[in-house]
Amino acid sequence: MTSLRTRHLTLLFLLLFSPLFLPYTQADEYTFASIEFEPFGYVEDGAIKGIIPDIARAIADEANIQIQITLLPYSRVVNYIKNGNADFAIFSRNSDNDDEVDYISLLFIQNVILLTKKGNPLLSHEEIYDPDKVASIGYLRGTNFCPEILLDDRLLTYELKDFTQGLKMLNSNRISAFLTIDNTALYESKKLGLQSSFEFPGLSLKTIEAWLQVPKQGPTDNPLPIGKIRSAAEKLTTEGKVDKILQQYLKTN
């Protein structure tokens, strides 16, 4: 006859090791830093939306990891990655960051342009230095799309807080050119009803590459599975899913 003590020990064993009573372990979660300006990253009805968050979620789903998305101004996204405060991010590749970040996967390419008002097209790079054509150039705060323009002492530049301010100032002749990204400027100008006010597609200056990037000195207690992240990003790019997300937001029709 089984003793009462033995029965109690058996019951205790079953309680401790039954799946119903095992401690719940949450899957590892990683922090993703996203640029905060529409359409790349923004909040709508309390939800984080945009090109970058959608790409990040697609990568996370493909890699089978959980992420928490943080929206930040462009300059803070860069610093978050460089300082290891975020596990990964997507932003333009810049040689200034080479010592502090690793470039995991190229996701998309965009054109940097100088946009002018209708009736004042820029037909060559030489015209940038013609004061009758370009008296002043506006650029977005925290960006460094074209340092050769911003650091040129021959050019008068103004820092702007966002695309909306830049386009409105260009439309009201408070600046004569706007240093910007082609598709994003077109997107914002359509929202403002100003698409026909500007000389699209603008004067092309260079292309910039948006890369998935991670800090060189990432956390050691919960390291990001970089191999899985890279494979997921490359698969999404190859299958055209990244382009599909871009077109969803940057429709030109």
Rank of each mutant, 00 (worst) to 15 (best):
T2N: 14
T6Q: 12
L9W: 04
T10F: 14
S18P: 07
L20F: 14
L22I: 07
L22N: 10
P23A: 13
T25W: 04
Q26W: 15
E29M: 14
T31G: 10
F32E: 03
A33W: 05
A33H: 04
S34G: 03
S34V: 06
Y42M: 06
Y42C: 03
D45Y: 08
I48A: 04
K49A: 09
G50H: 03
D54C: 11
A56P: 02
R57G: 07
I67A: 10
I67P: 08
I67W: 03
Q68E: 15
I69A: 06
R76C: 03
I81H: 09
G84E: 05
D87K: 02
D87H: 04
F88K: 02
F91K: 03
S92R: 15
S95C: 02
D96G: 04
D99A: 13
Y103P: 07
F108T: 09
V112H: 01
L115Q: 01
K118Y: 00
K118I: 02
N120H: 07
P121M: 07
S124D: 11
E126W: 13
Y129L: 13
D130H: 00
K133P: 03
L140E: 09
G142V: 14
C146Y: 01
P147L: 07
E148Y: 12
I149T: 01
D152M: 06
D153V: 09
D153T: 11
L156C: 09
K161Y: 15
Q165S: 11
G166V: 06
N171M: 10
N171A: 11
N171V: 05
S172N: 15
S172T: 14
N173D: 12
R174Y: 07
S176M: 08
F178D: 02
F178V: 04
I181W: 01
I181F: 05
D182A: 10
N183S: 13
T184A: 10
L186A: 03
K191Y: 10
K191M: 07
K191G: 03
L194S: 11
S196K: 13
G202I: 00
G202N: 00
L205H: 05
T207H: 08
T207D: 10
I208H: 02
A210V: 12
A210Y: 15
L212V: 12
L212G: 11
P215A: 01
P215T: 05
K216T: 01
G218W: 04
T220N: 07
D221L: 07
P223E: 01
G227K: 06
K228G: 00
K235I: 10
T238W: 06
E239P: 14
I245S: 04
I245M: 06
L246V: 09
L250F: 09
L250A: 03
N253I: 10
